[in-house]
Design a protein around this nucleic acid. Structure first.
Length: 191
DNA sequence: AGGAAGATCTACT
DNA sequence: GTAGATCTTCCTA
């Protein structure tokens, strides 16, 4: 079990989004460790940030920072969305974590979400932040640090097929497909 | 003040 | 499976 290094995040956001699939997201709470496998991501690239929709949001300026490998958390429709800043040197971009497959701390997640259906627990960007109790207090957390509250670690290399599609809910999407997910995984928000 | 937003829940057909 | 209400923050007028 190894934490992903900062170098991992200093690459093309699209590549990072694909490579994050299958990795384990760990949230270290006070006395408990909650974890889940990342099964769905979306890439946010330079063109997005320049787009009209996104420039409305001041917070996106954070994506242009140098802080690769830190969290970027913002609120949309009453949900917190968890992103990891990732881009080559001098560029801008990030990766949105859209869904995870619960591994540890499932009872805590159920309590946070107030639902019993495990499949419905973390199968969406707003759902997973609620399940892990992630709020903007954790904005700018450095996930490349070994002792960070939120960490992303390697797992045994798993074999799975990566599917792709256009992003979900985006009103001004780009021509290319920037959403990636593990095929045939039940925790993907939308197949 | 008003609206829109990279979403979700609930209640139906 | 789809439709409508509701969520909170930020932008525009």
């Amino acid at each position: 079990m190894k934490t992903l290094t900062r170098k991992f995040y200093k690459r093309d956001p699209v590549q990072v989004a694909k490579d994050l699939l299958g990795k384990i997201l760990v949230y270290r709470m006070n006395h408990e460790e909650i974890s889940g496998r990342i099964v769905e991501t979306e890439a946010y690239v330079e063109n997005d940030i320049a787009s009209k929709t996104l420039s409305r949001r001041k917070v996106f300026g954070q994506l242009t920072s140098q802080n690769c490998g830190t969290t970027f958390i913002y609120m949309v429709h009453g949900n917190w969305l968890l992103n990891i800043i990732a881009h080559p040197k001098g560029g801008m971009g990030g990766v949105l974590i859209r869904a995870i497959e619960p591994i540890r701390g499932i009872e805590t997640m159920k309590k946070n979400r107030n639902v019993e259906n495990q499949r419905n627990l973390t199968s969406g960007p707003g759902k997973l932040t609620k399940a892990l109790a992630i709020t903007n207090e954790l904005n700018k957390t450095d996930v490349a640090r070994i002792d960070a509250k939120i960490a992303i670690i390697e797992d045994d290399p798993a074999t799975f097929e990566i599917g792709s599609s256009h992003r979900i809910g985006v009103t001004h999407d780009l021509p290319q497909e920037l959403r990636f997910f593990i095929k045939a995984n039940r925790y993907v928000s939308k197949p």
